[in-house]
Design a protein around this nucleic acid. Structure first.
Lengths: 222, 222
DNA sequence: TGTACATCAGTGAACGCGCGTTCACTGATGTAC
DNA sequence: TGTACATCAGTGAACGCGCGTTCACTGATGTAC
């Protein structure tokens, strides 16, 4: 062999890795084959030795990004006490760093809406990755397991994805920060103490529920 | 005048209206100028008599879709008792009909992720429309007002948008339905009753939602 | 009143451009003898 | 050992195509005289 045995695999992986960043930054239609290959230090002609089509790379890059997110999260929460893990993920996900660096963030807010328009086959691949992420999240949900944990994980993921999409779309400004904060508190079931207007219980599932929620939040916070 | 005085305005409005449907269906990059004009029964050449650029139409169509959504919701909840209005919006938003007809649904799950990559000017226009929607939603939040209601509305919108994006992306299948259901229950403050075990009634009627929330919050606190 | 001209929403050919994809080729290096 | 050949990851020119945008024109109808 005139190349190391795994040379081609390494090149393939490099293309996917670089593409996953650029696609998350610019969107599923935001960069062409030539640009994606250039990112990997190659010319566009070799593309079809690695992928059946541009679309195939997009799907693979999406999956790669999801897998890497999962790995990063696992590594991040591993040293934490189990009770803090869910919160750690949510706070990172809904922090300004994640909002402001879509290229290295979760692939869902960046690409899911566009990929939702692709074939059923592609969407099935998406569904599998979403299921992986829900699984990881469900394992970290405090005080719940099984179907209840899964349900909380699904809702949390929906809130996180939606909040990041809206926070990015509403550009720089106060609204963007407010969206992240509201999502964070909603997922962590911790109404903002005092509320934005600093008057009365912020969460209003009913005045009495507000009190209960505050207590709940307070007890979990310690 | 060889045309009725408002003939051009009407044509303009028709282009915007038709475009707003097609763009929500196919995405901000999913249809070209010629296709958009054809939808309105025109040829592409006249496009630039109505819009400065394709991008300008996309932004206008987004705004139009948001305005129409607001109007539809207002009309829909108007006959309802105030206490039921928030629930009505959430259940419609997170129903299968909305998931399966993006062309006539909310523009946020359909377009926000793509528009988040546009200029600050465009994002400011998005932010204004998001703020309108949050305002409407905040008015309907039961048992809260001001900053607290706004915060709940922000979180609810994030959850709804994220759930619809993920439900569409995860294609036909059980996961898609589960995401909608989890989002619905989370927004309506009905987390898995019992908290830890996912047992008990899946739904609480509108007026008892407060109580359910108390129980849920209390059990999660332990 | 009739005729010439002005107006302007909409038409359709044409533009340059970048896209996804194909393909004959290169050149470094392994293998056969 | 040296030489000829085989392998194949990557190159770069070329393709047809559809895109956003421009522009000279059309044709229906209003206005001036």
């Amino acid at each position: 062999m005139r190349y190391a045995k795994d040379h081609k695999q390494e090149t393939h992986a490099r293309i996917v890795r670089k593409a996953s960043v650029k696609l998350r930054e610019r969107g599923a239609h935001g960069i062409g084959v030539a640009g994606l290959m250039k990112e990997a230090g190659l010319t566009h002609g070799g593309f079809y030795a690695h992928f059946d089509s541009r679309e195939a790379l997009v799907v693979e890059a999406f999956g790669d990004a999801m897998d890497r997110s999962l790995a990063v999260w696992r590594r991040k929460i591993e040293p934490l006490p189990p009770a803090d893990r869910f919160r750690a993920i949510v706070e990172t996900y809904l922090g300004p760093a994640h909002r402001d660096d879509s290229g290295h963030g979760c692939a869902l807010p960046a690409l899911a809406a566009e990929l939702a328009r692709e074939s059923v086959k592609t969407r099935r691949a998406l569904a599998a990755k979403i299921e992986d992420m829900v699984g990881l999240l469900a394992e970290q949900v405090p005080d719940a397991s099984g179907g209840a944990a899964r349900k909380q994980a699904l809702a949390a993921l929906a809130t996180m994805v939606g909040a990041v999409v809206l926070a990015r779309a509403s550009g720089p400004g106060e609204l963007s920060d407010d969206i992240l904060a509201a999502g964070r508190d909603a997922v962590l079931d911790k109404p903002a103490p005092g509320g934005t207007r600093a008057k009365g219980p912020a969460k209003a599932a009913g005045k009495t529920a507000g009190k209960a929620a505050i207590k709940a939040a307070a007890s979990r916070a310690t």
